[in-house]
Design a protein around this nucleic acid. Structure first.
Length: 139
RNA sequence: CUACAGGCCCGAACUAUCGUUUCGCGCAAGCGGAAAGGAAAGUCUGGACAGCACAGAGCAACUCACCGGUGAAGAGCCGGGAGGCGUGUAAGCGCCUACAGAAAGUGCCACAGAAAAUAACCGUCCCGGUUUCGGGAUAAGGGUGAAAAUGUGAGGUAAGAGCUCACGAUAGGGCAGGGCAACUUGCCUUAUGGGUAAACCUUGAGUGCUGUAAUGCCAUGUAUAGGUCCGCUGAGAACUGCUCGUUCAAGGGCCAGGGUAGGCAGCAGGAGGUAAGCAGUAAUGCUUAUCCCAGAUAAAUGAUAGUUUAGAAACAGAAUCCGGCUUACGAGGCUUGUAGCUAU
């Protein structure tokens, strides 16, 4: 599968069941004002990483504002996701992921992009740890 | 020209790169097309559409309210009438109006005032008594108030009063002229004991209820094992606002637990848009030509850079679809009215 900057239908997290599961059991990486919620799943999926975005209506009352924040998150994820996909493919791990925005101010695109580019290496690092502990438990 | 108020128009364009949703073509790679708003908003209305209901009677609730037209319909729109406000000597012009009924009934009318509805505090007048008082008549005058019993003049009277008369005002009725009508003009006649119906209410017209998470279909999947209460002395269900009434009726309610939560249709060709012509004061209608113009479901229109421009900033994101109403808002343009200044 070639790496590209596209962010198509098969890469989006759509199943309501998986979303409920993610919020119930998922772990998180905080990189204020962006928060990643992730969960490794055993299920077979058509793409190694499925991701969605959220702008809480609690923080943004108007639909226009929520749309704006979600578009920024989506665009930043699209440009910065390459290392994560590559890692998941190489290690053959399946991941579901949500990007939350937890500030009240509508951010600039530059800020969101910077924070996500910082958060994704941290996420990979966390995944590396859980892999080691799982391996230890198994042995 | 400036300020204020009302109405209308517009709601940036283009290029490049990387992306999203969808449609068409193609085996595929890919190529090509389309992609938020004037309010998409509030969910306030009217419909379309869908489901359930539709033997009957009563009650309740809600909506509307000058006339005519328009339209699928309306709490909309257009035109007209009436009333009010502003301006003006006036004519006129502009703006506003939930504009049926107060002569069916009930209620309410703060403060002030004698009194807020069938009004005697002061005053005026008469009678009795004779320094003060008592009985009566009287709405002309006084002050209060948002509002005080139809205005002015004359007659009249003890003093007064629509008590009578003249000219008016307001309301009802009649006749005549104008108008499809609301209404209006003139004449005659009757009455004149307030306001409030965005108080209850009355009159007239109308409304079955629910709402696209409607609804239909396909797929997947199981479990009702348990607890408790009620029940043929009728639980409960249907007639979907409620009651009566009618019909059915042996299982039903609650707690706990299990399964599913995927897909298709609805769902994008419509009371559709644009242009021209015709009819009409207008709203609007008709004809012809032409266009296809979002369709998601954790939910698509974005990011970056540059150019144009005085500036790109306001309010704000489709979720079944249309017609309206209301509210929010930016820079500029057009237009109407008022005020001011300058010039003529």
């Amino acid at each position: 599968m070639p790496l590209s900057n596209s962010y198509g239908r098969e890469e989006k997290l759509k199943s309501r069941k998986q979303i409920d599961l993610l919020f119930a059991k998922g772990k998180s990486v905080n990189q204020f004002p962006v928060k990643l919620i992730y969960l490794e799943v055993p299920d077979e999926m058509d793409f190694p990483v499925k991701a969605g975005v959220i702008a809480p209506s609690r923080l943004f009352k108007k639909a226009v504002q929520r749309n704006r924040v979600k578009r920024l998150l989506r665009e930043a994820y699209r440009t910065e996701k390459a290392p994560l996909i590559e890692y998941a493919q190489n290690q053959n791990r399946k991941l579901i992921l949500f990007l939350l925005f937890v500030d009240r101010q509508i951010p600039s695109y530059a800020l969101v992009k910077e924070k996500i580019s910082m958060a994704i290496p941290r996420l990979i690092k966390e995944l590396e740890k859980t892999k080691i502990t799982a391996a230890n438990e198994n042995s």
